[in-house]
Design a protein around this nucleic acid. Structure first.
Lengths: 352, 352
DNA sequence: CTGAAAGCGCTTACAG
DNA sequence: CTGAAAGCGCTTACAG
């Protein structure tokens, strides 16, 4: 004697369970949400509880998130918005947040290059980490509105001093970036720069490179500056090209870790030892760079990824507080692709 | 004279719009869903339409996806379940699906290593591509139930002959893998193998390697077989180690493209030319491998990623059809890390 | 100890 | 041309 809800193709609801267990839907809801165990005002006999649980089990019941979300306003979902999934930076963020969400019993949803603002507007998540740059001022405003309506939003951006309604993670990059450039200019006169024209941060870093050269009295040479993007392969090719040319560089300032890694292979391919014959500095301080051989010297934050995850969890549990702008200071992480500090300058190889 | 819904922190609903525009909520819904333009039975005067649209605009209205989803049963979301976001294989899938979803006006959600079954059970998406192996038989059964209840599911797996309720994409790997092994054994006697013990497919490929050696009468040498995982870095180190040892290999059969790429760098670092002095075959036919220098010879499907995307869209628009098992045949993609076919065998380098 | 009922924000068949 | 009303599947304050 099966009810209509037993037909294949029909999802069981709490009503189906209630019928089968011979109780009201309220009782089913209480049992399923363990309200009878947590709230002293709700009392259910163990026997009723068992019947409900058994019925749910037999029917293969799973709650309808849409209904639940509409009622409670919560989704138990976190949204991470990424520009690409291919950068080591994104991957580190995914790793940190996956761990944090799992521990908190939440589901992490990645949104790559899609209509994330629409998704969030439609109540897709309780919190969001925006690791892509909003394309327009209007998007920023809509983001703020969402934040003011109660969505926990963390924006990773240096573009704004503050943004009411959202948490802003600002990275104080410049001092450390300048320090890295100065390190190279103190040891080299032919320093290549790899950058990504499509990336605003990379453009700024190119600016720091140029100013650094100026500080050191080194003339700017356009040949040494290559648009590699954030690509191992293009960097590899450009580096081969540079090394084959006359008056080749002896060091590289790469505006992202991936292009630094690509350059590293090119050095090996040409039999150039790093760091004794060639020095490389990357930017981002990514796990990927740390795994290179030798590990990449890189400018970046210390523990950005975990800090983001921690902030999100705090917001979700405690709500916003006064401190909504978070400054993360960068530093130079000296590793294997630069020689130890205090090393005397190498004799600059001149073909002339 | 602002209504209560104008307060900050309160989302406007169609009711708010209706009040402001002086119409019923039904009219608002019709206008917002363009029913008045598409359904001849619904007629709204242009003037009313304008009033509704203006009110929605002023209030910053966005539909509540939970309510809409509960009513319609649709989410307009697609879920891609991935084991990791770091493999080139995953990335290629993300690229293809992002494009397809965008074109179809759907939102692609990535779920990495989370409770994807729970997410799908709770009606999180209209369709799902499962590119991770379900951990238990029970999960497979739950997946089938979801499929039978109307969720469009595509499972990428060779573990099952068929799975009622879901679309199965099976990859016919073996003939092509054997062909690649035979190519190497016809030219080399010292052939390394890089594999990933945690990966079932990789384990099978190791089996094909061993059988291939046997076919060619080449003794199995455990020294040449390394557990590199799917990691550039570990493969790089293992390859350096192998090349430094006595009786070094002259070719590599890598069970995934990433480890093949890592080995390639190691060859360069050691000054070994590829493919003239060392040949490498990877598996996966990934974009990442194609971007290597030289492009990696790799065994894999031709256009797997786009085919998956296309199948999904077909299911979403037309529903399931009789053909629910899809076989994709692999082949050997000869590129730059192997010498042209027909080349005479190289003289095997022996240190002895 | 349990149930009837309201209501979350939508969509849509139906009535005017 | 437009509106009143039912109902999607839940949760929860309230009444017994």
């Amino acid at each position: 004697m099966v009810g209509s809800a037993d037909r294949a193709g029909v999802r069981p609801t709490i009503r189906t369970i209630a019928e089968r267990a011979g109780v009201s839907i309220a009782t089913v809801s209480y049992v399923l949400n363990r309200r009878d165990l947590t709230d002293t005002k709700v009392k259910i006999t163990p026997e009723t509880r068992r019947r409900v649980l058994d019925a749910a089990e037999e029917l293969g019941y799973t709650p309808n998130q849409n209904a639940r979300g509409m009622r409670t306003g919560r989704t138990n979902q976190i949204c991470l918005v990424l520009e690409t999934v291919e950068s080591p930076w994104s991957q580190a963020l995914v790793t940190s947040l996956t761990r944090a969400c799992k521990a908190a019993g939440m589901t992490l949803l990645l949104l790559v290059d899609g209509d994330w603002l629409g998704f969030l507007s439609r109540q897709g998540a309780d919190g969001a980490i925006i690791a892509t740059v909003p394309e327009s001022q209007e998007m920023v405003e809509r983001l703020q509105v969402l934040g003011e309506r109660g969505l926990s939003i963390i924006l990773l951006s240096d573009e704004y001093d503050e943004l009411p309604g959202v948490d802003l993670i600002r990275q104080v990059q410049q001092p450390a970036v300048d320090e890295a450039v100065d390190l190279l200019t103190s040891r080299h006169r032919r320093i290549a720069c790899f950058w990504a024209p499509e990336n605003a941060e990379s453009r700024q870093r190119l600016g720091r490179y140029r100013e650094g050269l100026q500080r050191a009295g080194i003339p700017y040479d356009a040949v040494l500056v290559r648009e590699t993007g954030a690509s191992r392969e293009q960097a590899y090719r450009d580096m081969l090209d540079l090394l084959a040319g006359r008056d080749a560089p002896t060091a590289l300032f790469a505006t992202n870790d991936l292009s630094a890694i690509g350059a590293l292979w090119a050095c090996y391919r040409r039999g150039l030892d790093v760091p004794s014959a060639f020095e490389i500095v990357g930017i981002g301080n990514t796990p990927e760079g740390r795994r290179a051989d030798p590990p990449l010297t890189s400018v970046g934050a210390d523990a950005l990824y975990d800090e983001v995850a921690e902030l999100l969890m705090r917001r979700l549990t405690m709500g916003p507080d006064a401190q909504r702008v978070h400054r993360i200071h960068w530093s130079v992480h000296h590793r294997g692709t630069t020689r130890p500090l205090g090393d005397e300058p190498v004799n600059h190889r001149r073909r002339k």
